[in-house]
Design a protein around this nucleic acid. Structure first.
Lengths: 344, 344
DNA sequence: CTGTTAGCGCCTTCAC
DNA sequence: GTGAAGGCGCTAACAG
């Protein structure tokens, strides 16, 4: 009698089927599969090989991992896969995985905490060897529960409060100073730092550094604006107001990340403000289209690929038992000056 | 004696540990976990709950799936996660998964056949319930082996030769005609269709349709150029040559996909050709920056999100046992006319 | 209400 | 060279 067959549950040959088809025991098949073929006689190898391809047999990783406790799987949790930054980092992680013989599984949390929790749970319950996380928020406990679970983890870009974990990120202070100084040197007198709500430390660090730096030049104006990414009207108002209040000064806007730079550029277009001639514009994160938009948009490029590689390497050392104190691995960014911040 | 502990293999409490900590049997714990709590006495529930949180117990999905044969997991294989098209589709797939209570695992093949094979194997061996695939190439057998394995699959955008499978894609003929007609109506007389090598049917279909359509207007010139995505020099030459040979005509370039549109825009910038004033430019796939680049770039927008949703829904019907003949689900695109194809 | 038992598919001693 | 037996963590009869 055939065994219970739920719809969608696919019938697969098992090692036992192969064994009986090859008129041998499971052990020999297992040996055949695990590179111990030198222990088998030629005729047996032959029979097993034939049986495998006949039955289209594929060993169940599920069962294998259950036995071994190891999966050679790495999880990558991304807060927003729409963000080119994330994708670029991912490519680094991926390349490093390949080199280590690990397989990468990617999960997108869509900036939702629920999803983050869900995927963290899932990956953990599937016993991945480690997880690289670009967290949604910084004060969330979801992630912490897994720390106890002793599952190796590495954070990317964003830290999580009360969670001791290696973090790979940008030298935010240095980068923000570079960018601020650049704008000042180019002759801008009133600067607006636009950020999404500072729910992650990265945004906060950049803002803080910007404000500190501006305090060193009292003759200049440094302002901040906070805006939700897709609040177009609010952004228009923010910019309009900023421009109006500094009609007689050279003005520039600095965006906390690439996603926001896009929105600000759109807003400027709506307001008939040309970046370059009319107003300065710069933003964190490189954009593939930065050269194509008007006179070009100045960006602060992060070594995303290298950061991804570094994240995975660090994770691997943890997986291998490295128990040094956690550390921050910070990378320097590079200012790519373009027409949007040309000297006045 | 503690059991053998490889580095990186994490110690986890098992259901047995919980059972003994709660002074009960595994079954009760299992029941507790699987929502059959009404069968348990309050005191037992209490004890089990305490034991679970004390030991920080997390059930092993590996073992669970091994038992049930079901994973509620869906795999998504993307040829190029760098491509916004793919990411947009993915968001649709993801949303639909969530609605169905499925979990999505994403794999990026980086346009490498090896990787595609690897991930196909992997997902299959982990017994995912189904796979959505954006294949690397169209004449590859790797994917076909899994067909026999009876694993539900749906293809996105690209077909695979000799592989009977549902395909979700664009109405390429209709879309190409729309775009071609648009360029003709706008007064362009010499059109160049630029494509990456036609290793996937989508590119081929679009090219074919373009050429057919151009034959209907013998007074116009329709040419084609094939170029590798990152061959900048070759692309420059291609464009330069095209422009030179049609010095006296209104010229336009049509790009087979979004990634190529970006490269062509860059090339035009290098050659000091302004899209709009100097030469027409249009491309398949919407681009977030299409409005920001000069006078704007005309695109053919695909309903990517809806396509992702449709792909998953179709996959789910297959998982549930739907055995209708395979079908092509084709979606209409939308021409978004911008300054780059303004009438001459 | 609760516990015992028998596998899911695989790998790994251990014995022949 | 080869195979039988036990167990990885879990669920689902089947008894009490």
């Amino acid at each position: 009698m055939s065994k219970k067959q739920e719809p969608g549950a696919v019938v697969r040959a098992t090692i036992r089927d192969v064994a009986s088809a090859a008129k041998t025991g499971k052990t020999s098949v297992s040996r055949y599969l695990n590179g111990e073929q030198h222990l088998l006689s030629d005729s047996l190898k032959e029979r097993i090989g034939r049986a495998i391809s006949l039955l289209d047999y594929q060993p169940s990783q599920m069962a294998r991992s259950l036995k071994s406790g190891q999966t050679r799987l790495i999880g990558l949790i991304l807060a927003d896969i729409t963000n080119p930054y994330s994708v670029d980092v991912m490519r680094g992680v991926e390349a490093a995985c390949r080199q280590e013989g690990l397989t990468l599984l990617v999960c997108n949390t869509n900036n939702e905490l629920d999803q983050e929790k869900h995927y963290l749970q899932l990956l953990s319950s599937y016993r991945v060897d480690g997880i690289v996380v670009n967290a949604v928020g910084m004060r969330e406990a979801a992630i912490s529960t897994l720390q106890q679970a002793n599952l190796p983890m590495v954070l990317i870009d964003r830290k999580v409060a009360n969670f001791a974990c290696d973090v790979i990120g940008l030298k935010n202070v240095e980068a923000t100073q570079m960018m601020t100084d650049h704008l000042v040197q180019q002759g801008f007198e009133a600067l607006l730092f636009v950020s999404e709500p500072a729910t992650v430390n990265t945004r906060f660090d950049r803002l803080r550094t910007f404000l500190q730096r501006m305090q060193q030049s009292p003759q200049l104006t440094g302002e901040q604006g906070e805006i939700e990414l897709y609040n177009a009207e609010g952004l228009d108002n923010l910019l309009r107001d900023f421009v109006a209040r500094h009609a007689d000064k050279h003005k520039a806007v600095m965006c906390v990340n690439g996603a926001l730079t896009l929105q600000v550029a759109r807003a400027m277009q709506r307001l008939n403000l040309r970046w370059g001639p009319d107003i300065g514009l710069s933003g964190f994160d490189e954009l593939v289209w930065a050269d194509l938009a008007g006179v070009g948009i100045t960006t602060l490029k992060q070594p995303t690929y290298d950061m991804g590689v570094a994240a995975l390497r660090q994770l691997v050392t943890r997986i291998q038992g490295n128990s040094e104190p956690v550390k921050d691995l910070e990378f320097s960014g590079e200012l790519v000056a373009r027409g949007s911040t040309a000297a006045r």
